[in-house]
């Protein structure tokens, strides 16, 4: 059985160092398998958050060779094992221990977003009617598993630490899911421009690149929201059009 070196961040509260662990690797293994093996055989105190091992729960987010990835979905045969493989915690969030970070900021952000507000019911029994083709667009956003890899890779949060001014790609996707929902009548455009900071996104598409669910975050969520903000705040013709047509979306 072949062996490879895994360079894992050990420490807490951003104090610590990389440590090299040699581990045996076999066909079909993923990074989380190796981390568990190292935890079992060499470092019983290694802290790592995980749950489903199937890419559904979004718990095992980390940075593998510098790129945010789910450890359970990163197969070893996609990595160059002739060099040490680095495994680090996400950088955009406060560090707790080893590979574990405190992602609770995201939960607070989610609470800031105005909730789903449906139009009055379509039928006397209090139910609505929605065409499948109308919900298809927002169903893409519901694939999100809240792994926060997109938040981690976003340079506005990661590099510039603007958590107070920008909600990040994950929650722009959440806002898009609400704003574009055919039943929703809530209005979040003013918040998007001001406290949610959509203008801080400069469309680098890094969030789209790392999304394990393949959501086209930039093209299908962020840019359409930016266009809606332009409609409301920056385009005089669009404003005029709305005045004369009383456009309903």
């Amino acid at each position: 059985m072949a062996t490879a070196t895994f360079r894992i961040w050990r420490g807490d509260k951003a104090q610590g160092q990389f440590r090299d662990y040699n581990a045996e690797v076999a066909a079909g293994m993923v990074v989380l398998d190796v981390v568990h093996q190292i935890q079992m055989e060499q470092a019983g105190d290694l802290a790592v958050r995980w749950n489903c091992k199937a890419g559904r729960c979004g718990s095992c987010s980390a940075e593998i060779n510098g790129m945010p990835k789910l450890m359970c979905m990163t197969r070893l045969n996609t990595l160059a094992l002739d060099k040490p493989v680095t495994i680090e915690p996400m950088k955009a969030f406060p560090h707790l221990k080893d590979l574990v970070t405190d992602v609770s900021w995201n939960y607070k952000v989610k609470q800031l977003i105005p909730k789903f507000k449906p139009r009055p019911a379509d039928a006397p029994d209090g139910t609505w009617r929605i065409a499948q083709e109308d919900v298809e667009r927002v169903q893409e956003f519901r694939k999100c598993i809240e792994c926060y890899l997109c938040q981690d890779v976003c340079h506005v949060l990661r590099e510039h630490k603007m958590q107070e001014q920008f909600i990040g790609p994950r929650f722009l996707v959440h806002v898009a899911a609400l704003e574009m929902h055919p039943l929703d009548v809530g209005d979040r455009l003013k918040d998007l421009r001001t406290q949610f900071g959509i203008g801080l996104c400069n469309i680098t598409k890094c969030c789209t690149k790392v999304c394990p669910e393949g959501i086209a975050i930039t093209d299908n969520a962020i840019i359409p929201l930016k266009e809606r903000v332009v409609d409301r705040f920056f385009d005089p013709l669009s404003k005029l059009f709305r005045v004369f047509t009383a456009t309903k979306t």
Partner: peptide, 11 residues
């Protein structure tokens, strides 16, 4: 097992 000192918050 070896050890390398690298700060986590690099910029």
């Amino acid at each position: 097992m070896s050890q390398i000192d690298v700060p986590l918050s690099r910029s």
